[in-house]
Amino acid sequence: MRFINEKTAINGLADTIIKSGVSLYNAVKYIYSLTEEDFYNISIKDCLKVVLNNITDGDSLQTLGLRINEKTCAAMSGPEYNRILSLMVFSFAVRVPMLKIVKINGDSMTDDQIYQLYSAIIAKGAANYNDFIKETFLETKYLVKKGKPVPPYSAEWYKSYVMTNVPALAEINNRNMFILGAVDMLFAMFYSCMEEELKNKLSEYINDTPV
């Protein structure tokens, strides 16, 4: 794919993916804080709408009156939980080869460009702590090249990590049960919207006109 400026495009795409990771990480926290006092005041549907329409805005849910603090998200404030951010971004990075499917004006990204994008994301801090993310970059690349279906993005790795490493969230209580159910829906829809955003960004970097 021919970019106006390849380096700018690669960095821009990497920033978009990292910001999306931060946005998803915060969204889970905001939805968890909803269960503290606003369970019957704020609709989860509205929360999802706001998050999915502002993929790269990490604090979009503040407009609904939600706050992340010690009182509302005590269970998500430890160092074990903080590692989820880098895992989350890594989970996006390993699926970068799927951008090869995106064709704009009959043109798609080259393998080299895809690898540069993956490296840029890893260089900015994405990491697979204890190999919790089972997917790999090469595996995804192979599946795309062969034209085989790539498994949909899911929250299984998140739930397994939380159950293993965050005891406060592993307890059986109302709040924990709610958040574990909410992430199933959130992760899948979020990834779809992020793919759309990346397509728009690609168009931007090729034609230099905002979509």
């Binding site: 606003d38 005041n41 704020i42 609709s43 509205d46 407009t63 609904l64 009156g65």
Partner: peptide, 12 residues
Amino acid sequence: IFRRISEYKTNR
């Protein structure tokens, strides 16, 4: 406008 309507929706 979005912020204000969000306040309506969340009973604030």
